[in-house]
Simulated assay, not measured.
Amino acid sequence: MDTLMLDEHLAAGWYLVESDSATRYALRWGQGRLHMVRITGPGTHGRAWWDDQVVPLLGIWSISGDGAEPLPGMVRVGCRHRWLADPEGTFGESDWWWLQRTCTGFRKVGEAEMARLRAGTAGGDA
């Protein structure tokens, strides 16, 4: 199973987490901090005000679906992921995001590709 470990060994930059959904998730690692953006697309459900915005990522858990405990700090192909972002510092229920579709892959992308991906959304901070 392909796994992206979110730790100090990860190269800085953007990582796009892909699925069969038009909604995409991207992680940005740099200077010991994780950020994420949920890039909305046609058919995105459960829109939130922070969609298409880069926000701090507090945690991510890989959920295999076989009843095993969720694994923190990694993205795994073949799993769903639970994301904890804290755009306002409230730790409210709305701070949990789910990758509703199973992860089909991930890849490192550059700033130019991220800008192109986000250009079709409602916008946000670059």
Results as ranks from 00 to 15, higher is better:
residue 3 T to H: 14
residue 3 T to C: 08
residue 3 T to G: 13
residue 4 L to I: 14
residue 4 L to Q: 13
residue 6 L to F: 09
residue 6 L to A: 14
residue 8 E to R: 11
residue 10 L to D: 00
residue 11 A to Q: 00
residue 13 G to Q: 02
residue 14 W to D: 03
residue 15 Y to T: 15
residue 16 L to H: 04
residue 16 L to N: 00
residue 18 E to R: 06
residue 20 D to S: 10
residue 20 D to L: 01
residue 21 S to I: 03
residue 21 S to T: 11
residue 22 A to Q: 00
residue 22 A to C: 00
residue 22 A to G: 03
residue 23 T to M: 05
residue 24 R to E: 03
residue 25 Y to K: 13
residue 25 Y to R: 15
residue 26 A to G: 01
residue 26 A to V: 02
residue 27 L to W: 06
residue 27 L to T: 07
residue 28 R to F: 08
residue 28 R to K: 08
residue 28 R to Q: 12
residue 29 W to E: 02
residue 29 W to G: 04
residue 31 Q to A: 12
residue 31 Q to P: 06
residue 31 Q to N: 12
residue 31 Q to E: 01
residue 32 G to A: 05
residue 32 G to P: 02
residue 33 R to Q: 09
residue 36 M to P: 14
residue 36 M to L: 15
residue 37 V to W: 03
residue 37 V to A: 10
residue 39 I to F: 08
residue 40 T to D: 01
residue 41 G to P: 03
residue 41 G to R: 07
residue 41 G to W: 01
residue 41 G to V: 02
residue 42 P to G: 09
residue 42 P to T: 05
residue 43 G to I: 00
residue 43 G to V: 01
residue 43 G to H: 03
residue 45 H to V: 15
residue 46 G to Y: 10
residue 49 W to T: 14
residue 49 W to K: 12
residue 50 W to M: 08
residue 50 W to K: 10
residue 51 D to H: 14
residue 51 D to A: 12
residue 52 D to N: 12
residue 53 Q to N: 15
residue 55 V to E: 04
residue 55 V to C: 07
residue 55 V to W: 00
residue 56 P to T: 04
residue 57 L to N: 13
residue 58 L to Q: 11
residue 59 G to L: 05
residue 59 G to N: 08
residue 59 G to H: 05
residue 61 W to M: 15
residue 62 S to N: 00
residue 62 S to W: 01
residue 62 S to Y: 00
residue 64 S to M: 09
residue 65 G to C: 05
residue 65 G to A: 07
residue 66 D to N: 11
residue 66 D to P: 13
residue 66 D to A: 10
residue 67 G to N: 08
residue 68 A to Y: 09
residue 68 A to P: 06
residue 68 A to E: 11
residue 69 E to D: 15
residue 70 P to E: 04
residue 71 L to D: 11
residue 71 L to T: 09
residue 71 L to N: 07
residue 71 L to F: 06
residue 72 P to K: 11
residue 74 M to R: 15
residue 74 M to C: 15
residue 74 M to F: 14
residue 77 V to N: 11
residue 78 G to D: 04
residue 79 C to R: 15
residue 79 C to F: 13
residue 80 R to T: 12
residue 80 R to F: 03
residue 80 R to Y: 05
residue 81 H to G: 09
residue 84 L to P: 01
residue 85 A to P: 06
residue 85 A to S: 07
residue 87 P to Y: 11
residue 87 P to V: 12
residue 89 G to M: 00
residue 92 G to S: 06
residue 92 G to F: 00
residue 94 S to F: 06
residue 94 S to D: 08
residue 94 S to Y: 10
residue 95 D to R: 01
residue 96 W to R: 13
residue 97 W to Q: 05
residue 97 W to C: 08
residue 98 W to E: 14
residue 98 W to R: 15
residue 98 W to A: 15
residue 99 L to Q: 13
residue 99 L to N: 14
residue 99 L to M: 13
residue 102 T to M: 04
residue 102 T to Y: 04
residue 104 T to A: 05
residue 105 G to F: 04
residue 106 F to K: 12
residue 106 F to E: 10
residue 108 K to S: 12
residue 108 K to D: 05
residue 108 K to V: 11
residue 109 V to Y: 00
residue 110 G to N: 08
residue 111 E to L: 09
residue 114 M to C: 13
residue 114 M to Q: 10
residue 115 A to G: 05
residue 116 R to N: 08
residue 117 L to D: 01
residue 118 R to L: 02
residue 119 A to W: 07
residue 120 G to P: 03
residue 120 G to Y: 11
residue 121 T to Q: 02
residue 123 G to T: 03
residue 125 D to T: 06
residue 126 A to M: 09
